[in-house]
Write a protein that binds this DNA or RNA. Structure first.
Length: 296
DNA sequence: AAGATTGTTGCTTA
DNA sequence: TTAAGCAACAATCT
């Protein structure tokens, strides 16, 4: 469920806490991750030099190794930075990190980490935990060649300078037969949009999710292009959307949830026209839309 | 208790 | 070649 805004929020949160901190050791708690222990061992004593986001994937670089650590949270993965001990009610990480001024889920404690799959222990007494109920999330250590291949699979970054009207239109011309919902979800075309922001984008644009992109009017295309940028930017500013599992690196919920206009509102009244919001399966995903406001 | 669920991949079909 | 549909992955919730 973490999409671009959620992953970006985690990324920037982590930036402040793990960069240039010496890594003491890695612990693999779930064999399903298929991690090579000897390649992890080589990275002990090193530290992260930067954390980038590629679509919904996080890319960790090291100061003294060429290898990169790739983390994809898939549906229910969480990356939580916390203190390296078992504290009782309020963990110290909350006291320290909440001092940063953010309000949020105050009840989150390290005790809620029930599905720990992977951990990075830092020398300063903190650790980074991959917590994932459904075990779809992955961690990979890759060299430059594999990383270059991985990178190629991602399409345009919607918040980068490459996401221009020209590039967006070219994508549409290349895939005229695809429906717009599937188009928005395809990570190899535009990277980072998931089910929530696809539905929000189409509602904001007044476009029917079934519409073939080749049949969109110029006005509709422009609206979609602008809505993608506007909504994702706002959602990043609000620190993402919490629908079920998502929390940021400090265990805090996102603030975009209350700004959702269609996602999860099936059966409720449309904010624009008052008719009932529908939910159908389109492009293989549950799709929320107003059949009146999004009839074209 | 069956069915649905946020992401992605890979297979089958048209 | 392109796209749609569907199962699979694992666990939880309704």
């Amino acid at each position: 469920m973490p999409e671009l805004p959620e992953v970006e929020t985690i990324r920037s949160g982590l930036d402040r806490f793990v960069l240039n901190k010496e890594i003491k050791t890695f612990i693999v708690n779930d064999k399903k991750l298929n991690l090579n222990l000897s390649s992890l061992r080589k990275l002990r004593g090193d530290s992260f030099s930067k954390i980038e986001r590629l679509g919904k994937m996080l890319v960790f670089s090291f100061n003294n190794h060429e290898a990169k650590m790739l983390v994809h949270l898939k549906m229910t993965g969480q990356l939580i930075f916390c203190r390296n001990n078992k504290l009782k009610v309020k963990s110290e990480v909350e006291k320290i990190l909440l001092a940063g001024g953010h309000s949020g889920n105050e009840d989150f404690t390290v005790n809620d980490l029930k599905y720990v799959r992977f951990q990075i222990f830092f020398s300063n007494g903190y650790r980074l935990v991959l917590n994932d109920a459904r075990r779809f999330a992955y961690v990979k250590i890759v060299g430059p060649t594999i990383f270059a291949l991985e990178k190629k699979r991602f399409g345009l970054e919607p918040l980068s300078d490459d996401f221009t009207w020209k590039n967006f239109s070219m994508l549409i011309i290349k895939h005229p037969k695809r429906n717009i919902k599937a188009f928005l979800l395809d990570q190899s075309l535009i990277a980072g949009i998931g089910n929530i922001y696809a539905d929000e984008t189409l509602f904001a644009s007044g476009v029917n999710p079934q519409k073939k992109v080749g049949d969109l009017s110029e006005k509709q295309k422009k609206l979609i292009f602008q809505s993608i940028k506007r909504i994702l930017k706002l959602a990043v500013k609000k620190r993402g959307t919490t629908f079920s599992d998502y929390v940021d690196a400090r265990g805090l919920s996102g603030g975009f949830s209350r700004l959702l206009r269609v996602y999860g509102r099936d059966g409720d009244k449309c904010y624009k026209c008052g008719r009932v919001i529908k939910k159908d399966k389109i492009a293989g995903r549950g799709t929320h839309f107003c059949s009146y406001c999004q009839r074209y």
